[in-house]
Design a protein around this nucleic acid. Structure first.
Lengths: 329, 329
DNA sequence: TTGAAAGCGTTACCAG
DNA sequence: CTGGTAACGCTTTCAA
């Protein structure tokens, strides 16, 4: 494991002082062109690379932003990541990503590791476990220390910048569209009732159906959803489904297809699913598009602004969703 | 931006020496229980957290592994990442991820940033641009410095550990399956002819059809593929399609569906696509399963071993793919 | 134009 | 049991 060469070693080889080497490599005006030349070529020869750790420690800056996400198989999160990346890439900053797999412990550990000098700021979407546990001390302790921005999976009590999706309205509007099209018994299916976003979307559903129909709520595992939906359809209890996440959307779709109630529009479905999937299904699935990439880029821009001027009131920005009408509604 | 409190500041507050504080916090046997107590509670009170930068600089170790990937919307890469994560998570190491978006510049920059002290080792799948450009100096300069492991997107000339997918055989076998089922005119479609994996898969195809049929190769953009395939089908030139990547697989599928040659098995398709997508298509798409997660976990295990003993010959491990038979073949 | 020395936040050796 | 000091690799001020 040959160690990288250091400034000190270079200075010994070249028989100049450490500071001269450092200055030469940083193109300081204090150093003559000839020695600059000499030092730089020696540096190249020995494949010198500045030790980031030392540079960052010295400067107190890292020029990197930590992004802590619960999952990347979640298509929305991966869109958000792309959005973040697209704007950060154009700035002076780098990003490093940490995936928590929806685990509280992993999240705490990630945040700790990153925040203690490794990054200048953090963008986080909290994990499912964290939301259930409701323990946010690892995040609270960041406040006033480095900029923190929460995206999508928000914790209201933490005073920091936030970029969120209008989950309530998104579903409220979608369900209203169904109602306007004449649907009278709209079932809600969800496998994310643990998540705040799930709860918000459910509220949107409830508000939309209020005084118009009974709320029909089916929450649980994939198998449970399938079983319940089968019964509901068999008994002619529903004529539309609002699904809150990809898993439940696909479950609903699967059952609808099996029961042959999709192409004849006996049952309408609006769900959440990635574009690729929704488009390649036959018939195509109508979905709520959350504009993940825009959510990400908005977050990044807000954070960059915050890094410029650390003080000032935290901001919250809402990115609107929209119904992407395809076949199933 | 209130800075984190340091050992030095703690030592001043408590009126003990810096070294005493450091030792107490590290539970050294040299420190009395009472002072340990005193120091630790003060540390907790002031929310002391060791500065990773300093610790790592001092120890020359970071306990983190850098993972450089070209993309995460690529479903295979995201499976690989999960595999890596699943085994690293159980070790003493953390991972930080950097996404290059298939860009050479971004890759060079990521590797530079990470390798100069930020990580103990790197796992990389090189970007498309890098493979085209054939400039690997940023990787070569790592050799002998920190352990490097290449996964899937391999560069043969670099002497390092490698975990690869048997692209050649995977397609060779898949095409042979088609032949054995009686298919006589199998077209190859690909939108990844730039990538080495693409070239390998193409070789597998060529070897399989050799002396049995003419090679029918369709490479290019999505639109081009669609146009060509339409013609080929219209003219009755083909009875099967081997598609080398998700984009071309879905393009082929789309055309096959439009021409109504799928359900009646007039045309067979074997492609590459994520499980979720393949399963939800109707009819379901037969694919080559590359066992991405296993590729990832194998990589991580090999790297961990390498970190244990840095010396020793580089190893190459091949992870076999298998045909996941569904409907379209 | 060059060099010595202090300091970023730690740890570890050696004295006391 | 406690403290001083050097060192990790670098930048920067101040002298020369």
């Amino acid at each position: 494991m040959k160690k990288n060469i250091t400034i000190k070693e270079l200075s010994k080889i070249l028989e100049v002082s450490i500071s001269t080497v450092s200055k030469a490599l940083n193109d300081s005006y204090e150093i003559s062109d000839s020695t600059k030349e000499r030092i730089k070529s020696a540096a190249k020869l020995h494949n010198y690379k500045p030790n980031k750790l030392a540079v960052n420690l010295k400067s107190g800056k890292t020029n990197t932003i930590g992004v802590v996400l619960p999952s990347i198989k979640n298509f929305f999160m991966s869109r958000v990541l792309r959005g973040i990346d697209s704007v950060i890439a154009k700035s002076q900053y780098n990003i490093i990503i940490s995936i928590t797999n929806e685990s509280y412990d992993k999240e705490v550990q990630s945040v700790q590791t990153l925040s203690n000098g490794l990054v200048d700021a953090i963008i986080i979407a909290v994990s499912e476990e964290t939301q259930i546990k409701q323990d946010f001390s690892h995040l609270n302790s960041l406040i006033g220390d480095i900029p923190l921005l929460m995206v999508d999976r928000i914790v209201n009590s933490i005073p920091c910048d936030k970029v969120l999706v209008d989950d309530y309205n998104a579903v409220f509007n979608a369900v209203n569209e169904l109602i306007n099209e004449g649907r009278k018994s709209i079932a809600l299916v969800s496998s994310i009732n643990n998540l705040n976003v799930g709860k918000l979307r459910t509220k949107g559903y409830k508000a939309a159906v209020e005084n118009k129909q009974d709320a029909i709520i089916v929450e649980g595992s994939e198998e449970y959803l399938e079983k319940e939906l089968t019964t509901l359809i068999d008994l002619n209890k529903i004529d539309a489904i609002m699904a809150l996440d990809q898993e439940s959307s696909l479950a609903a779709y699967r059952i609808g297809k099996k029961k042959q109630v999709l192409t004849n529009k006996k049952i309408a479905i609006i769900g959440y699913a990635s574009r690729v999937i929704s488009e390649h299904l036959t018939p195509k699935l109508t979905t709520i598009d959350q504009h993940g990439k825009r959510v990400g880029s908005t977050s990044a821009r807000l954070l960059l602004k915050r890094l410029d001027e650390f003080d000032g009131e935290p901001e919250s920005i809402v990115v609107n969703s929209s119904v992407q009408k395809r076949f199933t509604s």
